[in-house]
Amino acid sequence: MENGNVIETFDLTKRYPRQTAVNGLSFSVKEGEIFGFLGPNGAGKSTTLLMLLGLSEPSGGSALVCGLDPIRQAREVKKIVGYLPENVGFYGDLDAVESLRYIADLNGMDRDATSEKISEALETVGLTNEKRKKVGAYSRGMKQRLGMAEVLLKDPKVMFLDEPTLGLDPDGAARLIDLIKTLNRERNITVLLSSHHLTQVQKISHRVGIMIKGEMVAEGSIDALAQEKFGVDGKEYSLEEIYMKYFQEG
């Protein structure tokens, strides 16, 4: 943390019996940053996130999240990291308030204070009107917003968002992206955003990292990457073009 890096990995490696999912990954995310974590399917992004959360043990290398070791201090890490997995699941027979209350219980939050925090989180994601509906009846967009509310409930310092806009309609996706931006700005939450929606990533990311076949092939601001790949002023190029160039070379 001394150097202002919220996430740091050193040669992080994950080997499965038949393949290497993450291969010597070293990158860092600074405090207050939105870091776009890009790469094709199966590049090892989700595996990296799981290792950063201490749910998967690295085969080699190490990582630090807010200066904590995710393996040995898993509980401390999980206290400050909010993780929204791809295809987040819910208990269909609970309503939004009950779902959030369970998360609050698991976080050991004070029972008297939770009601207020729950309504605040629901307010932030705009689900106040649907808070007594069973989650089973929620649309994809509402579920995703409820997932955000669960993340926000624990006042995270860092958010890992894995494909948060996947399957949302354009309006819903835009609103979610705005929400992430607002949270980052107003609450100074560092965001690690993994997504295939490159225009959205370009809109809000301060820096991006491109991961291909378990390795980080590029890391830096979009302008810097464009400069490196095209040798001209990056403003001309979209993230999509840069990404495709890296992808073809990879």
Binding site: P85, V88, G89, G108
Partner: peptide
């Protein structure tokens, strides 16, 4: 069931053992 519904991973990313 929790694994299939994707709730297991969510619970395990909360600060519990």
């Amino acid at each position: 069931r929790e694994r299939a519904e994707g709730t297991l991973i969510k619970i395990l990313t909360q600060p519990i053992f």
